[in-house]
Write a protein that binds this DNA or RNA. Structure first.
Length: 258
DNA sequence: ATGACGCATCGAATGCGA
């Protein structure tokens, strides 16, 4: 079974890329972020025709928005973080029938935070606190759980092209990294690091200044798995291919195989 | 220090991303 996370930076602008990528990579569940569209604009028909009969959407005008596209039924769909008031559409969760029973999938578009010390950074910290409590409660109910999405956190120095120059800037602060560590402390592991990976592996590259061509990137898109799931994980990899296409998303898809 | 690129918004310039 394969589950993928991909921040598409507007599903309207990226629909053909998504369809092309799925045709070449027919994963079981595709978790999207930054749809930048309202639910009524979600291209349900095109995705269903592509084999993704089960879609759950949590859209929003202009910004944010997340969705689950699945070949398997999506059960018990929950939008947003239970217990945390949020005006943004950032989280959608559902249960699928995994290889070894029910598998809870929590797909998140984490707050960017803009700049440490800013109001938006404060929102990021509060949001991460709310998420942590929510995931803890979900783990108690769902032993097999995956938390994935655009975390907007580079967990370690090796997840950044310039950890020295970007020290203490957004995605690199000790506060953000501490939140990431606390998510791991709930009993999750970073599936990408369960395997040998190429050095300088990133999942996002700036559109500007030839960021991709120079591999000036960050690894900020993650797939965390619970302990019962960890034993089943076969692979986790970043697919850089669609980042080379014309008018790409600035993020690459990341795929978990169990 | 600033902007660089891309997307969305109704119609141009701005907010936002990371």
């Amino acid at each position: 079974m394969k589950i993928t996370t991909w921040n598409v930076n507007s599903l309207t602008a990226r629909l053909q890329h998504v369809l092309d990528w799925l045709a070449a990579n027919p994963v079981d569940v595709l978790c999207l972020q930054e749809l930048k569209l309202t639910d009524d604009k979600f291209p349900l028909q095109a995705l269903q025709q592509a084999g993704y009969a089960h879609c759950a959407v949590f859209g929003q005008k202009t910004y944010n928005g997340v969705a689950l596209l699945s070949r398997l039924p999506l059960l018990d769909v929950v939008r947003n973080i239970t217990g945390f008031e949020d005006e943004h559409s950032r989280v959608i969760a559902a249960t699928v029938d995994g290889p070894q029973g029910p598998l809870r999938v929590i797909n998140g578009y984490f707050v960017n935070g803009q700049e440490p010390g800013s109001e938006k950074f404060g929102y990021k910290m509060r949001w991460l606190g709310g998420l942590q409590a929510y995931v803890a409660a979900e783990l108690a109910r769902h032993p097999q759980l995956v938390l994935l999405g655009d975390f907007n956190i580079a967990p370690e120095d090796r997840d950044s092209f310039d950890p020295v120059g970007l020290k203490d800037t957004i995605h690199h602060t000790v506060e953000e990294r501490e939140h990431f560590r606390q998510l791991l402390a709930l009993g999750l592991s970073d599936s990408f690091r369960l395997f040998e990976q190429p050095e300088k592996s990133y999942s996002w590259w700036d559109y500007r200044m030839l960021g991709y061509q120079k591999n000036r990137g960050l690894r900020i898109d993650h797939i965390l798995v619970s302990a019962p799931l960890q034993a089943q994980v076969k692979a986790c990899s970043i697919d850089r291919v669609p980042r080379k296409w014309e008018k790409p998303s600035d993020h690459a898809p990341v795929t978990l195989e169990i």
